[in-house]
């Protein structure tokens, strides 16, 4: 496999330049950031771009910014930088913690958040987690900028709503209200996770009942917000939701849309959803009471 087929490397300094290059070269060009997914495809000969457009010099894409209640993570921010960012730790601490567990330390140093979302590998921790932060992605092209809900952006395995000539420039997360207890539980023995469950328990506030946010990812063609399960949990006190965990986990197992692959059959993944939603709820409910869960599960990372 070693060695890559030759390509020309463009390193634009501005977004307009980058977009112009993509428009000009069409199918011949692919966007390059960390390259942790792209270079693997190139080595396998599955894609053969004649040109790469390196977006790492574009200034805004490297930044993490706080904007009102939102956290905006630029597309070329590496996972390692998300982990260490003071702004991420302030606004969305669970995101910093999960970023620490993406892939391995080498991939975290080089791979980027934007690259992860734009590649849309079904086995993605961040894509799963971001769904419960009401994430939107910003796309820029010649016709301007548009924002798209992450759930609409990711359309299937390796397929997104990004059109040719568009660049994913940032992902925007909506910070949780104070007192929210969250958890991300990921399971697997391979390089990529077999299952990821993201759960958040929002406390009741004036005019708003307590709320569960729940997403399951890595098991199907794309990560999924489990709206029906969330609806069944609406109004339940986060501190006692553990009493209903079995029932909610069973609902989640019915709601997911798993896909068989080398990580396991669809039936297995459905059952694992039930098991891990229950565990994620237990962790989150414990945190809602100020208690940290110490249970350990085989091949599982509890964040």
């Amino acid at each position: 496999m070693s060695g890559l087929r030759p390509f020309a490397l463009h390193r634009p300094d501005t977004l307009d330049e980058a977009i112009d290059l993509l428009e000009q070269h069409g199918d011949e060009a692919m966007i390059y950031a960390g390259g942790t997914e792209l270079l693997i495809l190139l080595k396998a000969g599955l894609v053969r771009p004649r040109r790469l457009v390196d977006v790492k010099r574009l200034p805004r894409l490297r930044e993490v910014a706080e904007a009102g209640d939102d956290l905006v993570i630029g597309a070329t921010v590496a996972h390692r930088d998300v982990e260490r960012s003071a702004a991420v730790r302030r606004r969305c601490p669970l995101v910093a913690e999960v970023a620490r567990h993406v892939a391995n330390v080498r991939v975290r140093n080089v791979g980027t958040v934007g690259g992860n979302l734009a590649f849309a590998d079904p086995h993605s921790d961040l894509a799963t987690l971001f769904l419960i932060f009401d994430a939107t992605v910003e796309l820029r092209g010649r016709s301007g900028a548009r924002a798209l809900a992450l759930g609409d952006f990711i359309q299937g395995p390796y397929e997104t709503a990004r059109a040719d000539g568009q660049i994913l420039t940032a992902v925007r997360l909506h910070a949780w209200p104070a007192g929210t207890a969250g958890a991300y539980v990921k399971y697997g023995v391979y390089e990529r996770p077999t299952l990821g469950v993201a759960a958040a328990l929002f406390p009741a506030a004036s005019g708003r009942p307590a709320e569960l946010r729940l997403a399951a990812g890595c098991i199907g063609p794309r990560p999924q917000r489990l709206g029906r399960t969330e609806a069944a949990a609406r109004g339940l006190d986060p501190r006692t939701i553990g009493e209903r965990a079995d029932e909610l986990a069973a609902l989640a197992a019915v709601e997911v849309d798993p896909m068989s692959d080398l990580h396991g059959s669809a039936e297995y993944k459905r059952e694992m959803t039930r098991v891990f939603v229950r565990r994620a709820l237990a962790v989150a409910a414990g945190r809602a009471q100020g208690a940290e869960a110490h249970a350990r599960y085989a091949h599982t990372v509890v964040v």
Binding site: L9, T36, I40, K43, N104, V105, N109, V110, E191
Partner: peptide
Amino acid sequence: RSCDLQVCGACTVLVDGAPVSACTYLAV
């Protein structure tokens, strides 16, 4: 060069002190 897919770590070098998979990292 071992897995050539950045999953095994045998090609690890440090760039500015940070471990990277040299098999999946452009020299430029």
